[in-house]
Every structure is written in structure tokens, then in C-alpha cells.
Design a protein around this nucleic acid. Structure first.
Length: 842
DNA sequence: ACATTTAAC
DNA sequence: GCCCGTTAAATGT
């Protein structure tokens, strides 16, 4: 299937058109020669919008090549020499680490979809067929290939090449079922084999080979399925017949590969038991066995490659297809010999464009690729030329890594021209609906929505937008996508946007930890929070702070639980008093939480409240939809976050306040801001953010004696409070453990009116440390703060060293700085250690 | 981070 | 008349 692909869209590239020829035309089955195929394709395609666009793309590639050639002209002999030395140093290193000890197998089903269709409908057996539609073919059988009918070719062109072509519609369910059958066999040889699509797989049979050496013969004996073999084309693909005829080692298709002569050609194949065959213990024998079993089980044939790494294995499976296998023995020279004259286009990862670019440099084969290694290192990016070097040395991955988490999900549709905005929006909504469904199936939520459009001239555009709160429902995705669509419609106005394809993608998925937080995020918070915040109490300052804090941090159940407990308490304790030590000793029981949850539910059902005052911007928000309100608050807060960051960089005193008191948080904060930057920050603001974090030396905090007058600690405005609140919430979850939970609860509670405790306390008073719970005589607020600070850090270390899933050293204070900056530089999601601690999510 | 391109099946 | 759908990664800005 894969080398049919190479022909796709390359009607102007005649070099590729006849690669696949099976020269043995059967009686009555005419094929077409290369010129004829080319001519027909050209006639069918020339002048079309599609073709025009192909030409345009081709021009772009040519320009790219031209730029490369200009770059090449400027390279001096000196530079080249230097590059040569550097690259060759690397080559030595690579050679030293060459690993030939693994045995990797690549299995590739022959013309898979077509073969399945032919199996299930004997009428098709002798005919040229293709699977797909008039607009696009997925694959074709070998009869059809003689006419130049390939995968990724539109059906209508295929029909011109081969008027008798039968086009069978796709039936993925069926292919999936067959694929599963094959995979069941493969799993026996490598339980962690790696499927690639429905018709391909990589296996690492290194272990199997070792075990197999001790296997008794009977364990390597397999029986013919006489039923399934009867219907198989004896001339071409019936392995069973070959075994039966005893021409096992001389079979022209299956065993023609020279490697089978190298190690086990003398092996006695035991056919003594009726209708059975015993396979040997070599890699070749294992692969023959696999292919035999696949055919017996599915009546379909497979090709296979055996080599020391995946790249070579894949190239090997292509070498003797269909229904053949090939092995590169695990020796350096065997590898290099295989590559010597191999066209680079045969290498997985080298596509049409790369081929063309390299050809412009006179590179066609892998050995030429090696010869030009120095030049390539000067013309291509590091990743590219290193990859080229690996290719030319025959290096590849020697183990199969299972594919990680999915990174995006999308859906797109091609249709006949749609040019009214109305239709486009409703189509967009439909796509969002489909995508939302798929996302929910996998429980995914993402932060980036990408809209893809292809206009009637086949020009493709993508537009993306990253939002603060992740999206997963139709409505949420559509909200973002429709804006993107609107922008595009406006950009061509007053002309209509004429499109033939639309797609929607969601990416930037939440990590597992983020998901946990998300489950009980702002929405659930406000559902419960509104009871005390919006219904019961006037939006006084203290409450505003409270909400700002809680809604901003999308943190989890810890806060929900604490909040619920506190709410009960708040009914007995007036918000303006007892924020000191008394509060620290309050009892919170799990039962309270349950009660509270129930209350919240009741409240929600009652739908009592319609007008809220936003605790951030103070504007009245009329809505009976909590989600909407939450979104508003979210936006308000994020806007404030950004403003505030700028403020931090400008206002030294406020920055010192925070960094002095709870230095850890600042990094958190910056991470948050960085994530928001494109929405709100200019470039300079961004850099302010980054430098802010990089200059924050967390080790200093222990030695540094803060010298801030209490008045300077006074929060000056709401955003200042919000910042503290935000930072604090990022911080607390990672410290929470069964034991000291309550202490933190108190701390958090205090934060609701934090100024009364930490900023307005008279000197010489006794304060209870919210961390260690001990009484601290404070001569100055600074001293008390310092104590809390040290306590917090101690707690942090203890907490984190208990967690097995995170390397302790990462959170060692001496290293925390580099850890945090490392996290920042990646620009990834919050790399806060709290993400890894289980204590935060219950 | 976004947009586009390349490559794969 | 008629040219897919989905994902990942590299590349350019």
C-alpha cells in the first residue's frame, strides 16, 4: 500500500509512475506503459483547479530549492572542511553506538483493503479493482496497478486509465475485523508490537527468538487449514500449496530471498505429520511462520522485513512484496550494502519534497546522502541533517516505543462549493458537534481550536486560537471556531468565502492532573460558592477577594472540600472577625462536605439567582446560566492576570512583597501569564514575565532577611490581592497531606481576609503559624512571615520526598530554581510539582 | 504560539 | 464533472 502512495499527486513526476510494474501480464490482462499512463493522467488533470494548485505548490518547492542553492553558493571550502570534521566526529560516535542486537520485523499486508474485498467476493478475483470512491481511492489490486491505478488517485482518473476497473466502497468495519485477527497472531511473538494503521505492524522478536531456541518441535508445528486454502489463487499466492508440494526452499515468491540460504537453508522441514509444517528457530523461520499463520487464518498474504531496526525493517518489507520477505543480517556491512544503491525515496520519512530537494544537490541514493553529509549539515536544520546521517548509516530505533498520548483530534469534510455564511456556520457547528462527540469518547479537553479551510482553488488555510479554559463540548468549540470562521469571512468580504473543505481540530489537551483539577474547577466552585458569595452576602471587599481567589485557580477537590467545610463554619462566624488563631483550630469533618454538596445541588435546582455582580470587574452580570457567568469571571480574571504581571515588573515593591512572602508562587504565576501571553501581552511584557521568573532565586529566600515595613505589605488594590491569591492556590495543593491538611485549610481561610492577619496585625502579638500550628511571638510581621516561609518550604520538601512518582532531587530546594526555569522554558503547561501529588485530588 | 508544509497510512 | 481524512512533526514567522 505504501508505495502506491508515492505516486499520489505526482502526475507531473514521471519518474515515479511505473515503479510497481509486475511484468508478468497475465493472458487477457492488458496493462499500460509508462507514457500512456502519464498522458492519460495529464489529460484528465490538466487545467483543473487542482492541477493549478499543484503547479503553485511546485513553484513554492522550487523557490525553497533556489534559496537552498543560494545558501550553498555562499559556503566556502573552509566552512565545508570544518563541517566535515564535525560531522565525522559524530559519525564515529554513532558508529560506536550502533546497535545490531535487536531483531525488528515489519509486517505489511499486501494490498490490504483490495485483498479483503477480493477474498469476500470471488467475482472480483480476476478483475482490476480499487477500493474507495470516484473521488478518491484507498488502494488497488495488482491487476489494476498494471494500468497505473494507485492509492490516493481519484477514482475518475483511475477509470480513464482502466475503464473496466471495479471500484468497491470502503468497509472499515470489515478491515478492522481482519486486522484484529492478524494482530492476535502478532501478539504471540511480541505482546507489545506496534500496529501502524490497519495493515502494518512492527514487532520486536528479539526475546521471542531467545525463548524459541528451547521450544520443542511441536510448538513450532502448524497445520494447514484445508478449507481456507481451496479458494486461493494457486499460481500466485498460495503458500500452502508450496509447502504441500515440498518446494519450500525453492518457492519463487516466498523463499527467493537470498538470506534464507544463509543460515537455515539446510534445516529439515518436517512434513511427516499430515497437513502440517514445522518452522525453524531463526528469524526468517519465525517470519515465515507468522506469514503462514496469517494466510491460514485470513486467506490474505503479507510481506515482511527483518532487520536490526525499524527503519531498515520497513524498507525490507518493501523489498520483496507482494507476499515475500527479506532480511538484512545484523552486520554493519550487510546494512551498508543494502543501502548502497537504494534511492532515498524508499526511506520512510523521505517524501516527494525532500526527494526533490536532495536531487537538486545531486543526491539520489543513500550512499550519495552519506557522501554529502558535510554539505547537508550546513544547508539543513539540525534535526534534518542528523536524520539524513542516520539514514545513510542505516541507523534507526531498535526498540518499539508505544505511542504516547494523543495530541490532537480533528474532523474535516470535503463538499461541493459552499459560499453562504449561513451554510458555513451551520456546517462549522456540525463539525464541532462531531468533534465534541469524539472528544468526549476519550474524555479529552483541549485549549486550542484550529479551523481549516480549503477554498475552491484548493488553497488551504488554517487558523488557530488558544483559549484559557479548555473546551470539549459542541458549544464551547463552536464559540471559538465561529469566531475564526467569522474572521475569514470578513477578510474576503464583500466577496463570499467559497470553500470546498472545512475542518475543526482541538489540541493542547489537559494533562491527567489538569483534568482532575478541571473536574471541580471554576464551575463547580461557583455552583457552591454562589451560595455564600452571591446570594447571602453583599459583594463586600472580603468576599470579592475570596471569589477572585477561588475562581481563578482551577484547582481541585481540596478547595472544594475546604470551601464546603468553611461555608458551614462561616454561618457561625462572621466574616470580619476571628481570622486569627481561633480560626486555625476549627474542626472540619468530611460529613460537612457531603452536607454542603447537597446544599449546593439544592440551590442549583432552585435557580434562584439571576443577577450577579462580578467580583472582579464589579459589573452586574445578568444571567441564569452559571457557565456563562463563570466564563465572564474567568475572562475578567485573566485580563487582570496580565495587567497585573505588567505591574509586577514595573512596581518593584509589590513584587518584593510577594516574592518575599511566598516566593514559590511567583514562578507559578509567571507560567500562567506565559500561557496567556498571546491573548493579551505584547512582546515586551512577555519578556518582563520571563525575566521576572529567572531572577527569582529561590535559594536566596532562606538567607535573605526581608526588610519590608508592614505598610509596604498592604495590598494596594484588588489585583494585588488576586495575584497573591492566585499564587497561593497554585502552591497549597502540593503541600496538602492527610496530616497537615487542616493547617492549610486555616491558612487558606485566612487568605479570604488575609490582610487582617498578615498585613494589619499589631506588633508584639502572638500568632499561630498556619503551617506548623505553633504559636509564634512576633516582634515584627517580617519575622513572622519569615517563619511561615521557612515552615512552608520545610513542609514542601517533606511532602514531596514522600511522593514516589517524582524524583526527589527535582524538588530539592537547591534545585528548585533550575527545575522551575526548566519548566518555564518548555513553555508547557504548569510544571508545578503539585500536578504530581495525589493528595490534591480526592 | 500560530501558520504552513511535509509525511505517513 | 470528478482529487480523502487524521495525526504528528518540522519549519518558518
Amino acid at each position: 500500500m505504501d508505495d502506491m502512495k508515492k505516486i499520489s499527486n505526482s502526475s507531473c513526476n514521471d519518474g515515479l509512475l511505473l515503479r510497481m510494474g509486475l511484468n508478468d501480464n497475465k493472458a487477457g490482462m492488458q496493462g499500460l506503459d509508462k507514457e500512456k499512463i502519464n498522458k492519460i493522467i495529464m489529460e484528465a488533470t490538466k487545467g483543473s483547479k487542482f492541477y493549478e494548485n499543484e503547479l503553485k505548490k511546485d513553484q513554492q518547492v522550487n523557490q525553497r530549492i533556489e534559496r537552498m542553492m543560494q545558501l550553498k553558493e555562499k559556503i566556502t571550502a573552509q566552512q565545508l572542511l570544518k563541517a566535515q570534521m564535525q560531522v565525522d566526529k559524530l559519525v564515529i560516535e554513532l558508529e560506536r553506538n550502533r546497535d545490531l542486537s535487536s531483531t525488528i520485523v515489519h509486517i505489511d499486508m499486501d494490498a490490504f483493503y483490495a485483498a479483503v474485498e477480493m477474498r469476500d467476493n470471488p467475482e472480483l478475483k480476476e478483475k482490476p479493482i480499487a477500493v474507495g470512491s470516484m473521488s478518491m481511492l484507498s488502494t488497488s489490486n495488482y491487476h489494476a496497478r498494471r494500468f497505473g491505478v494507485r492509492a490516493a488517485m481519484p477514482g475518475f482518473i483511475a477509470k480513464r486509465l482502466c475503464p473496466h476497473l471495479t471500484i468497491v466502497p470502503l468497509n472499515f468495519k470489515k478491515y478492522g475485523k481482519v486486522s484484529k485477527e492478524v494482530r492476535e497472531i502478532l501478539a504471540e511473538y511480541d505482546p507489545s508490537f506496534m500496529p501502524v494503521g490497519l495493515d502494518e505492524a512492527y514487532l520486536n522478536i528479539t526475546e521471542h527468538l531467545e525463548e524459541r531456541l528451547n521450544w520443542p518441535e511441536d510448538r513450532r508445528r502448524f497445520f494447514f487449514n484445508t478449507e481456507s486454502t481451496t479458494g486461493i489463487d494457486k499460481d500466485c499466492i498460495n503458500m500452502s500449496a508450496k509447502f504441500n508440494e515440498g518446494e519450500v526452499s525453492s518457492s519463487p515468491i516466498l523463499f527467493e530471498d537470498n538470506t534464507s540460504l544463509m543460515d537455515d537453508n539446510l534445516e529439515q522441514r518436517d512434513l511427516s505429520v499430515e497437513n502440517s509444517v514445522v518452522f525453524g528457530t531463526s528469524a526468517e523461520e519465525v517470519v515465515k511462520e507468522i506469514r503462514f499463520r496469517i494466510e491460514q487464518k485470513t486467506q490474505l498474504t503479507a510481506s515482511a522485513g527483518i532487520a536490526p531496526n525499524t527503519m531498515l525493517a520497513k524498507m525490507c518489507s518493501d523489498h520483496n512484496k507482494p507476499n515475500g520477505q527479506y532480511r538484512i543480517s545484523p552486520e554493519r556491512l550487510a546494512v551498508l550494502d543494502f543501502l548502497k544503491d537504494l534511492p532515498i525515496r524508499k526511506v520512510p520519512g523521505i517524501g516527494k519534497v525532500t526527494e526533490k530537494m536532495l536531487k537538486a544537490l545531486g543526491i539520489v541514493t543513500c550512499s550519495e546522502l552519506y557522501q554529502q553529509r558535510a554539505l547537508l549539515s550546513l544547508l539543513f536544520s539540525e534535526v534534518s541533517w542528523r536524520n539524513f546521517l542516520d539514514i545513510s548509516l542505516g541507523l534507526g530505533s531498535t526498540h518499539l516505543e508505544k505511542d504516547g498520548e494523543r495530541k490532537s483530534m480533528s474532523t474535516e469534510r470535503t463538499f461541493s462549493e459552499i459560499n453562504t455564511a449561513e451554510d458555513q456556520y451551520s456546517l462549522c457547528r456540525e463539525l464541532c458537534r462531531d468533534l465534541a462527540q469524539d472528544l468526549q469518547k476519550e474524555g479529552l479537553k483541549g485549549k486550542t481550536v484550529t479551523l481549516k479551510l480549503k477554498n475552491v482553488n484548493f488553497e488551504v488555510k488554517t487558523r488557530a486560537s488558544t483559549v484559557l479554559s479548555s473546551v470539549s463540548t459542541e458549544e464551547e468549540i463552536f464559540t471559538v471556531a465561529k469566531d475564526l470562521l467569522g474572521t475569514e469571512i470578513n477578510s474576503v468580504a464583500p466577496h463570499p468565502l467559497r470553500i470546498r473543505l472545512m475542518g475543526v481540530r482541538v489540541s493542547g489537551f489537559l494533562t491527567e492532573e489538569e483534568k482532575k483539577y478541571q473536574q471541580k474547577s471554576i464551575t463547580s466552585f461557583l455552583k457552591s460558592g454562589k451560595e455564600i458569595g452571591f446570594l447571602r452576602l453583599q459583594p463586600e471587599k472580603a468576599n470579592q477577594k475570596y471569589f477572585t481567589k477561588n475562581s481563578e485557580a482551577h484547582r481541585g477537590s481540596f478547595f472544594d472540600q475546604k470551601r464546603a467545610a468553611r461555608q458551614l463554619n462561616s454561618e457561625n462566624i462572621s466574616p470580619n472577625e476571628s481570622r486569627g488563631k481561633q480560626l486555625f483550630q476549627d474542626d472540619k469533618s468530611p460529613a460537612n462536605f457531603m452536607e454542603e454538596t447537597k446544599k449546593v445541588a439544592d440551590l442549583q435546582n432552585s435557580n434562584a439567582c439571576k443577577i450577579f455582580t462580578c467580583p472582579v470587574c464589579f459589573e452586574k452580570q445578568s444571567s441564569n446560566n452559571l457557565e456563562e457567568l463563570n466564563r465572564h469571571i474567568d475572562e475578567c480574571l485573566s485580563g487582570m492576570c496580565v495587567k497585573d504581571t505588567v505591574e509586577i515588573s514595573k512596581n518593584d515593591s509589590s513584587r518584593e512583597n510577594t516574592s518575599n512572602f511566598l516566593p514559590q508562587f511567583k514562578n507559578e504565576w509567571v507560567v500562567k501569564c506565559q500561557n496567556n501571553k498571546t491573548d493579551q501581552l505584547s512582546g515586551t511584557d512577555q519578556s518582563a514575565c520571563v525575566s521576572d521568573s529567572s531572577t527569582d532565586n529561590s535559594t536566596e529566600r532562606f538567607s535573605q532577611i526581608p526588610d519590608k515595613s508592614p505598610s509596604k505589605r498592604q495590598p494596594s488594590n484588588l489585583s494585588d490581592i488576586a495575584r497573591k491569591v492566585c499564587m497561593k492556590q497554585c502552591f497549597f495543593p502540593k503541600q496538602v497531606s492527610q496530616d497537615n491538611e487542616d493547617h492549610f485549610d486555616k491558612t487558606e481561610d485566612t487568605e479570604g481576609a488575609s490582610s487582617s492577619c498578615f498585613f494589619e496585625t499589631k506588633e508584639d502579638s502572638v500568632l499561630v503559624c498556619p503551617v506548623c500550628n505553633s504559636e509564634q511571638k512576633t516582634t515584627s510581621l517580617t519575622a513572622f512571615n519569615r517563619h511561615v516561609d521557612v515552615c512552608l518550604n520545610k513542609g514542601l520538601i517533606e511532602e514531596l520526598t514522600e511522593k514516589e512518582d517524582f524524583p526527589t532531587k527535582t524538588y530539592n530546594m537547591e534545585n528548585s530554581n533550575s527545575f522551575l526555569s526548566g519548566g518555564l522554558s518548555k513553555g508547557q503547561q504548569c510544571t508545578n510539582p503539585s500536578q504530581g501529588t495525589k493528595s490534591t485530588a480526592r
